[in-house]
Simulated assay, not measured.
Amino acid sequence: MTQDKTGWHAGHLAVLHALNIAKHASRAEIAQTTGLSPQSMTRIGQELIASGHIVEVRRRHTGGMGQPAIELGLVPGRILSLGLVLEHDRITCVLSDLVDGVIRRIEQEGDFLLAARSADASEALVAEALRHIPIDATLLGLGVSQSGFFFDKTARRVVRRGDIEGWMQLDLDVRLSERFGLDVIVENDGRAAAAGHLVHGVGSEYGSFFVVLMTRGVGGGAVIDRQLLRGRMGNAGEFAMLLPRSGNVRPSTESLADCLGLSVDSELAEAAIRSRAPGMNAWLNENAAYLERALLSVCALIDPEAIVFAGRLPLSIRAALAERIRLSGVSIGNISAPLPPIIVDTAADCLEIGAASLPVARLFAGLGRRR
């Protein structure tokens, strides 16, 4: 079997992937999930235990006859990744553990519309984060989440609001890779959010889902059979293109501020929802109608098992939007196809989790669910 930079071959990756999904599982269960033979599973399990990446967690007492099964689990702090989130008002770098998620977070606030300023701040934050990597940890790489769209498939350069020419000239992945010797993966923020749910979110329950990202703008990302859908240039999932281009009413923090004068962290938003304030009610109804039409297209095109509402838009507002949406599926006569549930992500740091999940998603690429 061929090995990657970590020294793991396909069998190692299959076992690690299975435990990332199941959290705890017996050798027999992992063998059944991965298709490994019992002999291969025993050998691979011993190798990963010896390297300190998995551990025997506990014996499972079922009350039946025979020897209780021993459950295996991933060891916290041994498989790490870095995530970098570039936003217009702040840049955040996180250190994430495959078991526990984000374990360290550092950020710099400011005006980061200019590419050069963003690149300099990014380097400083990554350098600081690398100081906290344990010697015995396996660092998978650095994932970068940024808004905009890719126009250069090879260099992964983006077009972004605020400094179009500057961003078009910036090869951020090359710059960070050469500076720190890391594998760097750059993705649009919508696909980064989808990667986060693939590794740490709803992806453990659903193999195919669509994420609607509601931040300063509106984005999207799709996972199909546990694989991040990128498309030809890396621009798959551009959900905003399905929304009306005219007007400033959108399910975004920018629209929330412009239309209603409410900030992302404002408790006034939840109060306005509870009191059924006319302005808030009209804004929610209009956005729910936009989202409903756009999501019908998503359902028809990719048939997801679930739809996730994520982002910096307040949780109460995303929940209120989800409650107002009524999807309809493909139907003939009185028979209709089942519809995907809309799941409201409760995490406030989906982009940070997503960026750090990009190296993990690439590591496990091709290891879809067995049917």
Rank of each mutant, 00 (worst) to 15 (best):
G279P: 05
Q227T: 13
P251D: 01
A272E: 09
R226D: 11
A269M: 12
T215D: 12
I224S: 12
G234S: 11
E267K: 14
I273C: 04
G234Y: 03
W283S: 01
M233H: 12
P251L: 10
A240T: 09
R245T: 11
G279H: 04
G237S: 12
R216H: 14
T253P: 05
N248T: 14
A277R: 01
G279M: 02
L228I: 08
P278L: 07
R250F: 15
G217I: 00
S263V: 02
L262A: 08
L243T: 07
D265C: 03
V264L: 13
V223C: 00
G234M: 06
I224A: 11
T253V: 15
D258H: 11
L260C: 01
W283L: 02
I273E: 06
S252K: 08
G221R: 02
N281S: 14
R274N: 10
R230G: 08
N285L: 11
E270C: 10
G279Q: 02
A277W: 05
R250M: 09
S263R: 13
G221P: 09
A282H: 09
S255C: 01
G261A: 05
L256Q: 02
D258P: 00
Y290G: 03
N285S: 05
G231A: 04
N248A: 14
E238S: 07
A288H: 01
A277V: 04
L262F: 08
A282E: 14
